[in-house]
Simulated assay, not measured.
Amino acid sequence: MSKLHAKYYADKMTQVQSAIEQNELVGEKTYRLRVAAPAIAASVVPGQFVMIRLAGTDAPLIGRALAVYNVTNDSTGTPTWIDLVYLRKGVMTETLANAALGTAVTLWGPLGNGFSNTPCDRLIMAVGGIGQTPMLTLGREANGSQSFGSPARENGWSQNVELIYGARKKSFLAGVDDFRAADFDVTLCTDDGSAGVRQLVPDVLAARLAELSKDERIRVVTCGPEIMMEKVAKVCAEAEVDCDVSMETPMACGIGVCFSCVAKVRQEGPEPWDYKRTCVEGPIFNANDICW
């Protein structure tokens, strides 16, 4: 393992304790949780995440990494609340789903590198499962409807924003109204055809890329099951389109200490690849760099 470069240190994170203000069911086994965390809300950029655990207890002991789904301002325009969307699966998320309003949670973040705000003509977000969670903020920054970071990053860097969102069935699609309200072009696909088209996300993406002009600067970002992201990466490579992936490897610390979240990433030098910590050197990587 090569030495971790200073730019990947998690020294800009803040640890806060806050009470759960909302914890709503937004899809089958899918919840949206809201907490007041002004320090995190003010500095987070799209694609970054927080670690969360229940405060004052060691059961469960290990926190859970959750992408920041949304940032909401108070009446003065100050970023104050963050929303986290999660799937109830496992001890930590089961505990969160059963937590009453007012329950104290500890969060540390923002963590990870986040998506770049590289200009393009068209941003296509290809997601599956719970992979939609980092895309609301990214799309809003891209179309200029919201700014993120401290100092605020440049927004309005894409002329068009599309979301291709797949799930097993209609009931698992969460946040669709939020994406439409944000003025994204939304295409839904389900395994059983209960919503949208009965196709897989990579196939829908391939057809979409084939019909778009080759003169457009197209950028694809993807998040979801690894097998889906691998196929999206292949589609983009064949179409010669830039693609970034948001890796969802399990994390324990979120700050690069425990080495539990490493991914095989290609590199230059005598060794063709190395293990990279998804929590600090990711979770966003160029799709061509991942050893699938």
Rank of each mutant, 00 (worst) to 15 (best):
R168F: 00
G256K: 06
T190G: 00
V241G: 08
V197C: 10
Q199K: 02
D274F: 04
T190V: 00
S171E: 06
G256Q: 05
S147C: 11
A152D: 12
G149V: 08
L163M: 09
L163V: 12
F148N: 02
P151I: 03
I284C: 05
A233G: 05
V232K: 00
R217T: 15
R168W: 00
V220F: 13
N155R: 12
M247Q: 08
M247P: 13
C236G: 05
T187K: 14
P202Y: 00
S150P: 12
P225S: 05
G282S: 01
M251R: 07
A263E: 07
G224K: 02
A152I: 05
E230L: 11
D274V: 14
D203S: 08
Q159Y: 02
L205K: 12
Q159R: 07
Y165I: 03
A237T: 09
V241M: 09
E248L: 14
W273A: 03
S213Y: 00
R168A: 00
S158R: 04
L173H: 00
D191A: 07
G144W: 04
S213P: 09
G193V: 05
C279M: 13
P250D: 14
M247W: 11
G269I: 11
R217N: 14
V201P: 06
D244M: 12
R208L: 04
C223S: 05
R266P: 13
E211H: 10
A167I: 00
A237M: 04
D177R: 10
D242V: 10
M247N: 10
K234D: 09
P225G: 03
I164Q: 08
